Computed example of a mutant assay.
Amino acid sequence: MPVVATKAIVFSSIKYGDTSLIVKCFTEQEGLKTYMVRGVLKSKKGKLKAAYFQPLTLLQLTANHNTRGTLNSIKEARVFPMYETIHTSIVKQTIVLFISEILSNIIQEEEQNEILYNYIETSLIWLDTHSSTANFHLLFLLNLSRFLGFYPDTSNEESFGFSLLEGSFTNKSYDKSVITGDNFLLFKRLLGINFDAIDIISFNKKERQKVLQVIIRYFELHLEGFKKPKSLDVLESVFS
């Protein structure tokens, strides 16, 4: 059974029995891995703490990775880097729960994807170290689509609509998957920018909800089996 040292991002953890956790992590070295962390809810003295496995915690792991499809095990873990603000901000915690649910839903491959890993890690560190984060989840999801293969084609920008199905600008306003008017203009403002330019976008509560609905619909059309996140209602209430 190979021992692997890797960076990892916690996607989810589920209680197993009274004392253990089943933890899903996206690792830098080998993609998605599921670990059985035995006794972590009981032991005060063990090397592993339950707090390490909060959604989207960044870890350095030494782990046994099985090749037979059974659950993997963690030998050592440390939180690195440690967040400074995410765990003390209700808004940031809510964003993190929402994003972790989406990532758990859509990332399934058990193979290295360093570019995607770096994007998620860099984004989380940005979220932790900045205060203007109300639109973070919108830009995170839209830019995530680049790594999943369906980022909007930004040619023909002079068109007055955007086809969510085709992922491109269009003038076919009769098509049900085409957004026009306010939704189109709001969505267009997010295209082509990175997090450092997020301050130039100001959405009010209603606009932010509209844009999020458009992005969720976009993901539904491009990812088979994509489920609307349960944490969406919590997110909307925090921003209301």
Rank of each mutant, 00 (worst) to 15 (best):
L32D: 00
A197T: 01
F80H: 13
N105G: 10
K7H: 14
K205N: 10
T62K: 15
I102N: 02
S12P: 00
Q54S: 06
V96H: 08
I99H: 04
N171C: 05
I215V: 13
L58S: 10
I198V: 06
L235Q: 01
L186F: 14
F150Y: 10
F136N: 03
S104I: 00
H222G: 01
G167S: 09
R217P: 06
G181I: 08
P81E: 07
S100A: 15
G192C: 09
R146Y: 15
F239Y: 14
H65M: 12
P81W: 09
K206I: 10
I215T: 05
S100D: 08
V23T: 11
K75V: 08
N105P: 00
S20P: 10
T19V: 09
V96T: 15
M36D: 00
E220V: 01
D233C: 00
H87M: 05
F140W: 06
A51G: 06
L97S: 10
L103F: 14
G161L: 02
E158D: 13
T57L: 00
V91G: 02
I179P: 12
F160L: 03
V178T: 14
Q213F: 11
S43I: 08
L103P: 05
D199A: 07
K45V: 07
I74S: 02
F160Q: 06
S202M: 05
K227P: 01
L41V: 09
K206S: 13
K92V: 06
E157M: 14
T154E: 14
F80S: 15
I200W: 01
G31M: 08
L58R: 14
I125P: 00
E220P: 00
Q29K: 15
A134I: 09
N113K: 13
H87N: 13
G17R: 11
K205I: 08
F160H: 05
T62Q: 14
L186G: 00
L221C: 04
L41S: 05
L142D: 08
L97M: 13
R78F: 01
L61W: 03
V23H: 04
T34S: 15
L139Y: 12
E84W: 06
L185R: 14
S155L: 13
S231K: 08
T19Y: 13
D175C: 05
N171A: 11
I193A: 04
M82Q: 11
N135M: 03
E109R: 11
I86V: 15
R189Y: 02
K75E: 12
K206G: 03
Y35A: 02
M1V: 12
H65W: 07
T133E: 07
S123N: 09
E224K: 14
F26E: 03
E220D: 07
A63F: 01
I201H: 07
L212A: 02
Y35N: 01
Y174W: 13
F162I: 02
S89L: 06
L32I: 15
I106F: 03
Y16A: 11
N66F: 10
L56S: 03
L144N: 01
T19P: 01
T62H: 09
L138R: 06
L164C: 10
S12G: 05
L56W: 08
G69I: 05
P152R: 12
E220T: 12
I179D: 07
N64E: 11
N143Q: 14
A63K: 02
L223F: 07
